[in-house]
């Protein structure tokens, strides 16, 4: 019996990571749902693998859970605002268990995070991962989450998840998914993943899902984020802070904290990059994906 210093297969590390994260949740009494990757039931997508651990956390306990993870050896790598236009997940890293993405809500679910979590939790299931009982959404909710996740993939054709979880699913499963689309207010993102986004052309989230599902320039994404904000305060916050330098992201890119000079250089470079992208599109409108 030897202690592994390296060479543990990624699939093993991730499954042990699920177990480790569940133990932290159990010890602190915080409700979490493992989503995607190894948490997916084979009846939803056969033999799905994962490269990190993803968990949706009771929104009221997100800060407490992050604190518990950090006490147990995880290090915060990317914060919520820095991770994506949706500000939905923070990434943490552990020397033995790799990455965990802690979701405070899931992109595409329009219901209030607290309400959405309760809907998912009330009929959750248990799944053994690395011989530890982990809490997961029911198969219908797993299917919906995979489809919503695919809406951000910028894939031109539906991928394996969308096929298994929706296109090739049986009637009963599709009915479960459709009921959840209703109760979780996930219509726009679901339409983006299933090729019916233009049905929602007048919805405030339309431009954002068009940008994330089909690709767009930085300016288009920034404008779409402002339009999609549910309140004017959030719209103003996005307008003000989106163009600023994402120091956490820069830290990941550089593999070290950026210097003040590098932050200033990036502050000046971002608008120029965005402008170049926009000009490229204007000069060559047919050169991007529809």
């Amino acid at each position: 019996m030897t202690e592994a210093s390296r060479g543990v297969p990624l699939g093993v590390t991730v499954r042990l990571g699920h177990a480790a994260v569940q133990r932290v949740a159990d010890a602190s009494g915080i409700r979490i749902l493992h989503i995607k990757g190894y948490a997916v039931d084979p009846e939803v997508v056969p033999e799905r693998i994962g490269t990190d651990v993803d968990v949706l956390v009771d929104p009221a306990e997100v800060d407490a859970f992050l604190s518990e993870l950090q006490s147990a050896g995880w290090r915060r790598v990317i914060g919520f605002r820095a991770g994506s236009p949706f500000g939905h997940a923070a990434a943490l890293w552990h020397q033995s268990w790799g990455y965990v993405d802690v979701h405070r809500h899931f992109p595409g679910i329009g219901a209030r995070p607290r309400d959405a979590f309760e809907i998912l939790w009330q009929d959750h299931r248990q799944r053994e991962i690395a011989s530890v009982t982990c809490t997961v959404p029911n198969p219908g909710a797993q299917s919906l989450i995979l489809v919503l996740n695919a809406a951000r993939s910028k894939a031109s054709v539906p991928g394996r998840d969308v096929h298994a979880a929706w296109l090739d699913a049986g009637e009963a499963r599709r009915a479960e998914v459709e009921a959840l689309v209703e109760s979780l207010h996930a219509h726009v993102a679901f339409a983006a993943a299933t090729g019916r986004l233009d049905d929602y052309r007048d919805h405030r989230e339309y431009a954002l899902w068009k940008a994330v599902s089909r690709g767009g320039t930085r300016f288009e994404e920034w404008r779409a984020r402002i339009l999609a904000a549910p309140t004017w305060r959030e719209a103003a916050h996005t307008a003000l802070f989106a163009p600023l330098v994402n120091v956490e992201h820069l830290t990941v890119v550089l593999h070290r904290p950026p210097t003040r000079r590098e932050i200033v250089r990036e502050f000046l470079a971002r608008p120029v990059r965005g402008l170049r992208e926009q000009l490229r599109v204007l000069r060559n409108p047919g050169g991007r994906r529809a």
Binding site: M1, A4, V8, A72, S96
Partner: peptide
């Protein structure tokens, strides 16, 4: 878990 380390058998 979560303490580790991983033991290889």
């Amino acid at each position: 878990v979560p303490e580790g380390p991983v033991l290889v058998l």
